[in-house]
Structure formats: structure tokens, C-alpha cells
Amino acid sequence: MNLRELTNTEAMAEALREEMIRDPSVFIIGEDLVAHGGIFGQFIGLPQAFPGRVIDTPISETAIVGAGLGAALTGMRPFVDLHFADFTTCAMDEIVNQVAKIRYMFGGQAKIPLVIWAPDGAGLSAAAHHSQSLEAWFIHTPGLKVVSPCFPYDVKGLIKASIRSDDPIIFFMHKKIFSSKGPVPAEEYLIPLGKAEIKRKGKDVTLIAYSIMVLHALEAAKELEKEGIDVEVLDLRTLWPMDWESIAESVTKTHRVLIAHEACVTCGFGAEISARIQEELFDELDAPILRVGAYRVPIPFSPPLERFVIPGKESLIKSIYKILGKEMN
């Protein structure tokens, strides 16, 4: 394998480029893509490489997502850029009532090869309208698939798989990981939707995470290693369909579980995972399942407030000690 170090942004652009070459029905639509290359520069070079297939829109999120849907229903494979995950709210009817339901409601007549891509997450003092993690809403909505990877390798493989999928995908990427780097093979590959991956093997406790929390989880695991605690980090990558097999396998090995996401704990995806583990694997558990996530408040602007609200490595370490019934030193 020929590995290169790419940023998440580069990995994503590469995936898009390859898929656009491979399939002329793929196009990108959203605000500020052409001159600006996307607000995070994620599309730089693509408008020139594929004239007419990277389309700038007015600020009309309802019509942008709806246009993606209509094009998906009529033979295209749109990739919709929503600027910020927060703006999904401006297209909620399209995403929840239309995109998610059309295939089922019409008895399976239609395919919806549509990707709605949006940066989410906090940590940049972007305040309450530009910092949310809203994945739980969409996991809760039947008909959608939800993806939220962390590493360039996964980003590239999952973008490609999402574009090729005939189902609607909500693809979240945390703003803070755009420039983080990782190895990416030069050869073509796909990562199947719905498959988690163990990013660090361990035997004492399973830390289930996704998106930026995987980075925090790996850091926490490294620190705990010094204390003789062996953490297994399971990166979900795809949130729905949920990879229950991988979760069950890890839980059956470690018997202890911590679930981490940046979204607020209340009714977050961790609640679902936790409920399911206790329903199906109660006898395997040696300790209560704990969850780490944000406080249930909008993301505040001021750095000390924001730091307080969103979880990081420290909260993970604290929770793991608690799960193991050990004192922190």
C-alpha cells in the first residue's frame, strides 16, 4: 500500500474528485463553493476541475436540500454542502419529511442517492448558531443514515461509499478535525457504511466514541496506559446503521463501557447505545454504563464557558476511573 499523510480536508477533496471522475451524475451543490472553495476550503480545485458540476446557490437551505432530493429522484447523485450542521434546521422539512420518508412512503419506488454534508461541533468560539452537534435528531429519524468519521482514511472511504449509496446520508465532520492528518492509501478503497473500527485494542474497558471524541479517547487511553489501565477505543464511524456486532463483541470482552460524544448527554446517541447494551448484554456487564457528553445548554461563546460545556480527555479519564471503581491519583 502506498500511504500518504493527508488532512481530513484533503482526503475529502480527493474522494470527491475520484467519485466525480468515476460517475458523471455526481455533482456538488451549496453556498460559496466556487470562488471560496467552501467555507473551510474543502472544495478547492474542484470547481475548476469539474466546471458546471460544483454549483453555487443563493442562501436558501430549504431549496438547496430539496434540490438535492429532486435531483436524486431523477437520476443524479448530489452532494449537498450545508455550510454548518446548524443550518440543517433551515431545511428540516426537506430532510425529515421529504428526504427521509419518500422512499418508504412511496412503497420503495424511489432511490435517494443523496449526501448531505455538514461540519458540526464546538470548540472554536463560534457560539450557539455555529457549534452544534445534532446527529441524534437524524439518527432518530427513520430513513436517514448518519456518518461521522474522525480520521482521513475513514473520511475518504466513507465519503466514497456515501456517494455510491442509494440511500440518503447525513455526513457530519467536526470542524476541529479538518486539518488533522493521517495516512491515506493512494489506491482506491471504500469503507462500508455501518462498520465500526477498533482504533486501539484493550481489555479493561470499552470506550465507544465517534468524531472528535475518538481523538480525545485515544489520548485518554494513552494516559491511562501509564496507570496500567487498558482501554479499548471503538470508533463507530457510521452512527446509523449502528454496528451492533462490533459493539457487542467489545463489550463481551471488556464488560465495562463508556460512551462519548460531544453532543449533549440527554437523549444523545449514547442513550440509545447504552439502553441496547443493557437490554441485550446485561449479564455481561460488570459496572454501570457511563456516558460523557456536553451539558444540556446551547454552546456558549466565551472560551471558559465553552470549555466547561463540551467534554474532553479529562472527563473521559474521570469516568473510566469511576467505571473501574478506582480512585484517581
Binding site: 455533482f27 430549504t62 430539496g66 434540490a67 429532486g70 431523477t74 443524479m76 422539512d93 421529504q98
Partner: peptide, 19 residues
Amino acid sequence: VVAGGFPIIVGAGLSIKLR
């Protein structure tokens, strides 16, 4: 949904144009 067809038709129109 009242007005639900508007954004979809834009997509259909765009797809016609692209194809």
C-alpha cells in the same frame, strides 16, 4: 406538507439541465 413540492421540482429541473 403544503409547499413540499417546490424544492423537489427545483432539483428535478436542475437534474434535467445537468443531464
